[in-house]
């Protein structure tokens, strides 16, 4: 009985892992398959689809997405650091309520936020800001709460005695921020920024409302295209953008060192 149970458990467990991995594996295989028929005969695999990405049809949306994601990451990093500093570090009066406000966009579905922003821009006569500015504003609303949460966590974990130690050693307010607080919460800031970058780069529901002809992000371009066909070039686009994301994470990690924080230690 208990043997049967444990066999059943491992079968189910393996099935779930397979379920998780399968679509990713299939897309990887599709991106190197010679025809639209996905094949695992690896001796026939080819990189020709990746070569075909080198046209403005795919490069332009990619550059726009990367640009927006980078701007969004930086702005939400700054905004969230400021917010978290007041709320989680200085604990200004009413900090709990302000924190809830900073996190409140999380409670609203993205598609609802999208409707709200597009209605706002159009009725405020700001319709011309659809496209890049609108996308940046929309994505920031989406990413600031995540970044606030991550940076606030590292501020809550900050030992206030370090600030007092620096103070009694003669450090001014700015010196304490510069030499003690910022270096220690840097991993939190960078993980918040990385998160913001990924969310912005992959975003569909908000971008749907905010793109305009000629200013479309990569995911929107992809889904518009694949409503009509399952061209293997789509697999190549997807794999390429996943590789790009991984490269960005690697880069941010090298600068910010946030895996350290994720694993729960410091130096």
């Amino acid at each position: 009985m208990s043997k049967l149970l444990s066999v059943g458990y491992w079968v189910f467990f393996s099935f779930i892992l397979l379920f998780i991995a399968l679509p990713m594996v299939v897309v990887l295989a599709a991106s190197v398959s010679p025809t639209s028929h996905v094949t695992f005969e690896f001796w026939t695999w080819t990189l020709e689809w990746f070569g075909k990405l080198w046209t403005s049809k795919w490069l332009d949306p990619f550059i726009l997405s990367a640009k927006i994601a980078a701007i969004v990451a930086v702005i939400s990093g700054v905004l969230a650091t400021l917010g978290a500093y007041a709320v989680a570090y200085e604990k200004c009066p009413g900090h709990d309520a302000i924190m809830s406000f900073l996190l409140s966009p999380l409670a609203v579905p993205q598609i609802v936020k999208g409707v709200a922003i597009v209605l706002f821009l159009s009725s405020a006569g700001l319709f011309r800001y659809l496209g890049t500015p609108g996308l940046i504003a929309g994505h920031i609303i989406l990413t600031v709460p995540f970044a606030v949460r991550m940076i606030a966590t590292s501020m809550y974990n900050f030992d206030k005695n370090l600030d007092r130690a620096a103070r009694i050693l003669g450090a001014s307010w700015w010196q304490r921020i510069r030499y003690v607080l910022l270096p220690l919460i840097k991993p939190g800031i960078f993980s918040g920024m990385t998160f913001a970058f990924i969310i912005s780069f992959n975003n569909v529901p908000l971008s749907l409302f905010l793109v305009r002809p000629g200013q479309s992000t990569l995911p929107i371009t992809v889904i518009n295209y694949f409503e009509y066909s399952l061209d293997p070039i789509l697999a190549a686009v997807n794999v390429a953008s996943l590789l790009f994301i991984l490269a960005v994470i690697f880069l941010f990690e090298r600068i910010g060192g946030f895996t350290v924080q994720i694993h729960g230690g410091s130096k």
């Binding site: 005695n161 103070r167 009694i168 220690l184």
Partner: peptide, 20 residues
């Protein structure tokens, strides 16, 4: 007079060494 201007030394219970 703020702490940073008092020219005092302080050793903390948890040492409060700068970990970085």
């Amino acid at each position: 007079v703020p702490p940073e201007k008092r020219n005092i030394g302080l050793v903390f219970q948890n040492y409060a060494l700068f970990p970085h």
